[in-house]
Design a protein around this nucleic acid. Structure first.
Lengths: 215, 215, 215, 215
DNA sequence: AATGAATGAGGGTTCATTCAT
DNA sequence: CATGAATGAACCCTCATTCAT
């Protein structure tokens, strides 16, 4: 039994600590020295784990998006109720968001920092992820409704903005928030939440709040 | 007749140029030297107009919120249709946002940079502004609906996130976007936009798109 | 009757205020802006009264030494008791010093700042002044006693160091200090102050403490 | 065998070089660039050895006072002749002063620059040092003599002023100066130096000039 | 696998000074 | 007489990064 942390474990610890610092001070104001202090690893020792500060940000964002995508794929089994799909998407997003608020803040807030290959790499994952949402919405939006692009990004705006205002003691947990936002997005604020909706078959919504399951 | 710009005009020019640079590179990566180059004013000469880089950011944000609030007050005449009020609020926000995208990006993206008095000053205006929205929503939300806080910030998230994705050539103008977002927020994406809504007396909505006027 | 201050009066006010600031912060740390604030005269307005910061320091030091020398000449009438002369010299120095502590601190502390003509000008007056003391001491020192240079500068050291420690509430006034220092310098600390000294005719010592007048 | 200088040796070298520059130009006019040039260490490299210019000054002053105090304690063995003690004190002070003129000038001239903790740290040592002199003087001064405070600071004035006038080629070495100043301070200038004094048992004055040893 | 020591580039800011008005 | 506006030079300091060990 070897209790020494492996390379990967150490790297993950560095990513987590760095995300915390980037979230707190912002990427540019955070210094590698801050990260050295937070991790207990010497300034130059850190460069064993990443090539540059920019790569460090990339690793954080890439790992974050990777996990987000993976969770999404695991949690989104087939099914033919796009509304339920959307709810699952939102719930997945918010669960991960609130469980990894620092990483997600870095993802949301520092999205324009990366350049070159790093930028391209993250952008690709982001595009894939966004397309998932877009695809779901494409099935949902009625003719003559809101533009798909507008709808998609409005949804992401609602969700990603969370890092600016969310307080765990006041604003409910991820699932509650997911329900609210799904409701707002699909039915609007004017519709009472308990309201009976058009019958829709449950699309792989096991575990989802009962409201989404037509009785 | 003196055509030389006054102190105030020069200051406003500096604020505008600085907002552009802050929007492009982010506050921390932008240097006063960048601003000097963009304005044609010498590095030290700039300090005649502001005391510090932080004050410069404050001036931008404060002036921006000030104008936003002022426009809101001018454009929000009495009336008793809260839905119309909300539409006006959103339209005012987006009109200003898209007409001053750089400033608004700075407002949205660099909201945590300021400290001390500067931070407090902007926060006060922001709170006042947010409360306007919140007050309108309080009249709109049905019992058992979405939490007021959640609704309010979801709305702002939808609107403020725009700076990350809006492209004038693809995404319609401010008024169109305002209409879409009002629709999403109040009725939800599932509702077709042309749909007849509950009759509601026009609440000071002169100039608003016809859809909001009940036939 | 014109109550507006004349050029000279304004200049003197500036010199006084500047001496205060130089004394407090030191010449190099003090800025012309500080002086502008202290005098109420605009930054550029000050340059009507002096050509440069260095000239300002010169004016202060020159005026200060000038007054010191003038007072000395007025207060040092003939007489043939060199000890009494010395006492008068010391008293004159300390009276002026304590009545103009800020100026004297600037004189003592910033003596190496000036360059070129300015430096030469002040140095000349300082030399003349120092020679007065030296001349008096030359008559006093016994054969085989302390070196004249050493004695002279030890005396000035004792006196000029005052600016580092003097507190009006604890350390007596100028005349008391002058008596003490004269005593230390001539008779030493081991000699009680009241002790009868060798008879010496009063050398123009009107107003001096009785101890110096042989009964 | 490693002949490369250790961290401490390098730091001491930097302190010495910096003291030289501070002595020459004054703390505020001296720039870190000057020190970089004098030491051959790059501008930023210097900050590996101190946190700020102010800390650099502190290190110089603290180290200087530390050595001064240590030498004093080593050189001041017991004994009951306070006059001999005083002579030793003065000799210790002047030996160190003249052997480290640049540091001592910095100590004397830049004593008001430090702030906060740095200031407090040096002030504590200075107080301890001054009290040594004061304690000795307290035993020496006769009733009705000069005030203790006045005597103490007059002595320090005499000694510390040296940096303004001392020239090795004209003014004797440290021990000669110490003898002169002790003489002036205790017996006064009027007393010839060779004069027989009250018999006093030698108080640990090995190595002191013969004059202090009663025949 | 890790670090102490060092550096070039660049950052925000201050300052004495000028000059048209 | 006096000032508002402006500037070039310089200053202290921080940073990401490197390299010998």
């Amino acid at each position: 039994m070897d209790s020494r942390p492996s390379y990967d474990e150490k790297l993950l610890g560095i990513l987590r600590a760095s995300a915390g610092i980037f979230a707190e001070k912002g990427y540019h104001r955070a210094s590698i020295r801050d990260i050295s202090a937070a991790t207990g690893i010497s300034l130059s020792g850190l460069y064993y784990y990443f090539r540059s500060k920019e790569e460090l940000l990339f690793l954080i964002q890439d790992h974050c998006f990777g996990t987000l995508l993976q969770r999404l794929e695991e949690g989104l089994p087939g099914g033919d109720d796009p509304a339920a799909h959307l709810h699952l998407f939102i719930r997945n997003h918010l669960r991960f968001f609130l469980a990894n608020r620092e990483e997600m803040k870095v993802l949301s807030h520092e999205s324009e920092v990366l350049t070159g290959e790093y930028r391209a790499g993250v952008a690709a994952k982001k595009r894939r992820y966004t397309e998932r949402a877009s695809d779901i919405l494409a099935e949902l939006l009625p003719r003559g409704g809101v533009e798909l692009r507008t709808a998609t990004f409005s949804l992401f705006g609602m969700m990603n903005w969370i890092y600016t205002w969310y307080r765990p003691d006041r604003d409910g947990n991820a699932d509650e928030l997911a329900e609210s936002m799904t409701h707002i997005f699909l039915r609007g604020c004017l519709t009472p939440m308990g309201a009976k909706r058009d019958a829709a078959p449950d699309g792989g919504l096991e575990g989802a709040p009962s409201i989404w399951r037509t009785g």
